[in-house]
């Protein structure tokens, strides 16, 4: 039995008061309670940015690494110890900008981890510059005349490259978000949840702007239909869908599966030392 208090961290929270990040943190905690994951069974990985500080505020194992580099750290942890529940918490700048290449290739690897992206469409910690998802023509503290670059459509990108679980949540809907996280963490394979998190300090849209546009995908939406999912993933502006866009329940090769099938199925830490005889035999190849 795990309770929400088990995740209580003593670290001082550095987020702005009232930030929707608090909602995401609560949703993750309640999802972990629902899944009965003990703190020592969880490993959170993050990069840099306000979102990436989240692991400090949830008692568990964590590796808070460099800007953009959470995913390569996380896939390696997952392959060394598949028994850990590995969760990456990151932001739009961290994951889609600095770490964009890792985002693409982690999708291709399909590791059994969950990726949660706090997407506030702005750089918060560096005080208000455009991120890869900032809307076209939005004025920022650096793009004074408005953003000239097309925004990235990360959900569509993920779908195109075979991500088997693609979802979007909203930080203001804690219950709905928590349910999304439960489904994502239960999913075997790479599960990706982009979370709309209005930035109340530097954001280019108000909270109400989001609220007016967000709608839940209807119950009759077919989450196994990739073409429909792609259409929904490109829908942004007047209406913004949330929910599970796509879920592929067919068996799919995951990162490390070949190794586990053929060579060793378990934690690599259990392998211990190699026999000296193995090294002697290998050296004899050269004799």
């Amino acid at each position: 039995m795990v309770e929400i208090e088990d995740y209580q961290s003593d670290a001082e929270n550095q987020w702005c008061p009232g930030c929707p990040n608090f909602g995401i943190l609560r949703a993750i905690k309640s999802a972990l309670v629902a899944l009965a994951r003990k703190p020592e069974e969880i490993c959170m990985v993050s990069g840099i940015g306000q979102a990436a500080k989240l692991p400090h505020y949830l008692r568990c194992n964590f590796f808070n690494g460099l800007h953009g580099r959470a995913l390569p750290i996380a896939v390696a942890i997952n392959v060394v110890n598949p028994k850990l529940t590995t969760i990456v918490v990151t932001g739009d700048g961290d994951c889609y900008g600095e770490g964009g290449n890792h985002f693409l290739h982690t999708i291709r690897r399909n590791p059994n981890i969950t990726l949660i992206v706090h997407n506030n469409q702005i750089y918060g910690l560096t005080k208000g510059q455009a991120s890869p998802t900032t809307d076209l023509r939005a004025k920022t503290r650096l793009q004074f005349e408005g953003v000239e670059l097309e925004p990235l459509r990360p959900l569509a990108t993920a779908l195109l490259h075979g991500c088997p679980f693609v979802a979007r949540g909203y930080a203001g809907d804690i219950k709905g978000l928590s349910d999304l996280f439960v489904e994502a963490m239960r999913f075997k394979g790479f599960s990706y949840v982009d979370v709309i998190q209005p930035c109340i300090t530097w954001g280019t849209h108000t909270v109400s702007w989001y609220k007016e546009r967000i709608y839940k995908l209807p119950p009759d939406y077919d989450l196994h239909d990739k073409e429909e999912a792609l259409k929904k993933a490109c829908e942004w502006g007047d209406r913004i869908p949330i929910g599970v866009f796509y879920r592929d329940d067919r068996p799919k090769m995951g990162f490390g599966d070949q190794f586990r099938d053929k060579i060793f199925d378990g934690r690599l830490t259990d392998l211990g030392f190699r026999k000296q005889q193995t090294i002697i035999e290998m050296l004899d190849i050269f004799r």
């Binding site: 590796f63 690494g65 580099r69 996380a74 060394v80 850990l84």
Partner: peptide
Amino acid sequence: EDEIAAVNMAIGASYAG
């Protein structure tokens, strides 16, 4: 995918034990 990923993967694996 690149050397940045390579070194971070090695660090992640090492952290994992």
